[in-house]
Write a protein that binds this DNA or RNA. Structure first.
Lengths: 348, 348
DNA sequence: CTGTTAGCGCCTTCAC
DNA sequence: GTGAAGGCGCTAACAG
């Protein structure tokens, strides 16, 4: 068999190496960890024995001894979402620089699996957890207040739980939404619709709030019919746009809560023979990879995703180092990415 | 502080629970693992103590004892690629059903990081590894033949290393490419270009081979100028298509080695004022999520991605269970997904 | 510079 | 049905 089976029978241990090199296990350990503490001669002997035995240190044992794993779990709720990868990449950069490994957990929004990952950390299989999920894995069944639980090192990114005081790195979603709206105002639009995200997530709520505030600031009355439900998916964008287009007095611009639903909206608009941005302008949110590849290319709000990942990981490493996290949320700036899907309000 | 710092000082151990319940640690252990071996009365006492102490078993210690972690690492080389998530999801389904946890590792095609994940397994932090990367993490620096290395349980998915005899789950890429070509032939196309993937990956080579074989079968001479280099990215699709369009006698159809580059190709074609499929048909490969959302929607080859993930994980669990893997690669069927980007050859 | 010793927290015989 | 004891593989004092 080209590989060993999982029984561990044939695995060399430090004792084997020690015997082979004619030294104690302590010396083998030292050679591996702090070679400078060992004489050149023994070092060579040990290294030779290590190679000969095909020895790999068992980190389970090492970690048990040191009570740390040097790995961090990043949990997302939908790995399919093209928004996350860049955040993960940022987190990995920082982690790698400090000798940490990043493991990713996918929950599919399933509380059972969220809980499983939390337990992985509580049971010391990882040192900490970065949550991109916007909620705390609910403990047990009884309703003890979450704050009173013994939580392992935890950092939120993007999403956040207000009033819990957990360290968080994110953008100002409401302000970003206002930025999108101001762009549309400048193009002359006044009748602007919003395709919302799932309203059980705080980022959706914040974006909707920003939309409303922008209208108010501009002296325009928010009109309930112009807010369409959505859930961040392509299909929900298609459906929401169809509903908005069926309105007696339809909007001249749509601000979608994320790019995926914006792309769905564009699809729906075009399939009705209308033009984007000729008849209706569309602006998205997130600046995912494919936003540049749609037709027309999508105007959107860009988040500094790598930076979010880097900062979240940096805070995590500080936490593990005994330093205290920043007071209050770390808010990172966004940018308006103007492409082709927004244009002047049609004359009509 | 709302969470404990990493020093582990305040963490309850089994000894604490035992003291609290007035029993031995052995009894606590049994209560947690095999409650039926313990009297109801003691069980209750122990459970109460567990709750009171806020005890979570330390899996580091447990795993060391049992020499297994019940977690599997799935390694991808580019987490940004929308192709992987569904495979991972399939793997998770199977893993979860057997009480295993899936952790995901991203390598960004960096050998150092590939190696780091391998070491995670070799050092027993995970029981096995499923590779979606198409190469074996190179060991050390010396060039000992890979086959002679001590490899942990390993399964390949999608990619594979020929002649190494490692268990693999994949599709027949050459045959799938022929299927794409036959679709174009049926629409009357004869002058068909190919946008290749990175040729250091076997799947790209196989798809290119299938393209060539299909032409030959059809009695058409393969023309080197009709094969454009690419690397699976959107931009490489744009560039490759631009080069193909500049040809004196340009193709009437393009078969791209993956969807992302196909979408780039469509973009390039449209930006030159040509129509898809009016002037040029485009077919992709993989059927990623966004393939349905492009304009026109992309005709492509669909892989049974969840099933690939499920099968790979099933083989892994068999391996860990001491069973031997299937002889030869497991080949799963593909499907032709016909959408709007392919049509009859233009008359001209 | 190197060896001895003593655990890290848990599970598992083996007695009782 | 329960307790005592040993050890998984490794590292960190402490001697020498």
């Amino acid at each position: 068999m080209p590989f060993e089976s999982g029984d561990g029978a044939g695995t060399a241990t430090m004792k084997d190496v020690a015997r082979l090199a004619g030294v104690s296990t302590a010396t083998v350990s030292r050679t591996l960890i702090k070679p400078e503490l060992v004489s050149t001669r023994t070092r060579e002997r040990v290294m030779k024995a290590v190679a000969e035995a095909g020895y790999t240190p068992n980190s389970l044992a090492r970690n048990l001894r040191k009570m740390q794993t040097r790995s961090i779990i990043v949990v997302v709720q939908d790995i399919t979402n093209p928004f996350y990868p860049e955040i993960l990449r940022g987190a990995e950069q920082t982690a790698q620089a400090f000798g940490y490994t990043v493991l990713m957990g996918n929950t599919d929004n399933d509380p059972v699996r969220e809980r499983a990952y939390l337990e992985l950390v509580q049971s010391r299989r990882a040192d900490g957890m970065i949550l991109l999920t916007g909620r705390l894995p609910a403990q047990g069944t009884d309703s003890v207040a979450v704050e009173r639980e013994r939580l392992p090192p935890l950092v939120f990114a993007c999403e956040h739980l207000p009033d819990l005081g957990l360290p968080t790195v994110r953008i100002d979603n409401a302000e970003a939404a206002r930025m999108a709206m101001r762009h549309l105002f400048e193009l002359g639009h006044e009748r602007i619709a919003h395709i919302a995200g799932p309203l059980n997530r705080i980022i959706s709520v914040d974006r909707l709030a920003g939309y409303r505030e922008a209208l108010t600031e501009r002296g325009l009355p928010p009109e309930p019919a112009l807010v369409a439900d959505g859930d961040f998916t392509f299909n929900s964008g298609v459906e929401a746009a169809s509903r908005l287009l069926a309105l007696a007095h339809r909007p001249t611009a749509i601000f979608a809560a994320n790019d995926e639903s914006a792309i769905g909206a564009i699809q729906a608009i075009k399939s009705q023979g209308l033009s984007v941005p000729g008849d209706i302008s569309v602006i998205g949110f997130d600046n995912i990879l494919f936003a540049a590849a749609t037709d027309p290319a999508l105007t959107t709000i860009g988040q500094p995703r790598q930076e979010i990942g880097r900062r979240a990981m940096a805070i995590m490493l500080d936490l593990l180092d005994g330093k205290s996290p920043p007071l209050g949320d770390v808010i990172l700036p966004v940018e308006l990415v103007i492409r082709r899907s927004t244009g002047p309000r049609p004359l009509a």
